[in-house]
Simulated assay, not measured.
Amino acid sequence: MSSKYTAAVVQAAPVLFDLAATLDKTADLVNQAQAKGAKLILFPEAFISAYPRGLSFGTVVGSRHPEGRLLWQRYWESSIAEGDASCLRLGQMAKDANAFLVIGVNEKDTVSGTLYCSMFYFGPNGDFLGKHRKIKPTAQERVIWGEDDGSTLSSFDTAIGKLGGLICWENYMPMARMAMYQRGVQVYLAPTADNRAGWQQTMQHIALEGRCFVLGCNQYVTKAMYPADLPGIQDLENQPAIMASGGSIIVDPLGNVLAEPLWGEEGILTAEIDLDQVIQSKLDFDPIGHYNRSDIFDFKVNRQPPIKVVDQ
């Protein structure tokens, strides 16, 4: 295992609702991160191919508008499925960069038709390692995304440490966080769409609570980036020019900020991950060890898979 390496957090926007163009942009950004020496590259929530902020999909309680169904189809068509050509291309990007690639995607279940907000993990040899599906979409997100059943609360034991994480407001769910901690996650990945200033405190809290490195990753998106011909585009009339201002961050296991939050632009943050610091941080706190009090508390997660050992 490498004790020290460079991790990169990519703050950018996809080419909204355009799968092919988004994949091209992703490849360019992966190359840029690789040029910075990154061995782990994280992209934001729903990077492929949109976090549809501000759009209603023509829904109100009790009715749906046909225009919203057309928007849903457009969204579906810009999404990907595990093992499809787009997924394989992402694996090739990871292989070309010789890095672990973790990316937020809209994942389509081609059997059921449901979309999930997911994180896809790829190894440096190009293998698809696994995924995590969001277990609880927030508010209006529940119109467009299904819920996972806990069977993809995944984690991975790799050559660069134990990787795992949660998406956006899942990180406010104490038991979901504990599900990650109990797998011994050392590098905790938190792609999000939350660009409020308070989010950085959440990232620092998780680092301190979990005694792990935390990579928080968000998009930078403007209203002008939305396609003019998008069904339901009129929903954005009263939205601000900057739809998501970023705020990506990297934090060490003692809550120290290694890469300051980036606001108001696209960019790639990097920081050195030193896994020895994870060990050192356990001196005075360990949520699954000497601070666990298993004689008082009994914690169980239904259907959570064991940590996957990755020989890469």
Results as ranks from 00 to 15, higher is better:
Lys162Gln: 10
Gln239Val: 09
Asp235Asn: 08
Asp148Val: 03
Pro231Trp: 02
Gly216Ser: 12
Ala224Thr: 07
Gly246Asp: 00
Leu153Pro: 00
Glu209Phe: 10
Arg142Leu: 15
Leu258Arg: 02
Leu163Asp: 06
Phe156Tyr: 09
Gly255Thr: 00
Gly216Tyr: 05
Trp199Tyr: 11
Arg142Thr: 15
Ile206Thr: 03
Thr202Leu: 14
Ser248Ala: 07
Val185Asn: 04
Gly164Trp: 00
Val251Phe: 03
Thr152Tyr: 01
Gly165Glu: 10
Cys212Thr: 02
Thr158Gln: 09
Arg196Asp: 10
Ser248Trp: 00
Arg211Gly: 08
Ala139Asp: 14
Val221Gln: 11
Phe156Leu: 03
Gln204Glu: 07
Pro253Trp: 05
Thr138Pro: 13
Met178His: 11
Gly150Pro: 00
Glu147Thr: 15
Gln234Ala: 15
Trp169Ser: 15
Gly216Asp: 08
Gln140Thr: 14
Val214Tyr: 01
Ala159Phe: 01
Ala244Ser: 14
Gly210Cys: 11
Glu147Lys: 15
Gln182Pro: 07
Cys217Gln: 08
Ile233His: 12
Lys136Ser: 13
Arg177Gln: 13
Val257Trp: 05
Arg142Lys: 15
Pro253Gln: 12
Ala224Asp: 14
Asp235Leu: 02
Gln219Met: 13
Pro231Cys: 07
Cys212Leu: 01
Pro231Asp: 06
Ala228Lys: 12
Gln201Met: 10
Trp145Cys: 12
Gln234Val: 15
Met243Thr: 00
Asp229Trp: 04
Met225Glu: 15
Pro240Cys: 07
Gln186Thr: 08
Pro191Lys: 04
Met180Gln: 13
Val251Thr: 05
Gly150Ser: 01
Val187His: 01
Arg183Ile: 07
Ala207His: 03
Thr158Phe: 05
Ala139Tyr: 10
Cys212Trp: 00
Pro191Val: 04
Asp194Cys: 13
Gly150Asn: 02
Leu230Asn: 10
Met178Phe: 12
Val187Phe: 02
Glu237Arg: 12
Ser151Tyr: 04
Ala190Tyr: 05
Ser154Tyr: 00
Leu189Lys: 06
Val257Asp: 04
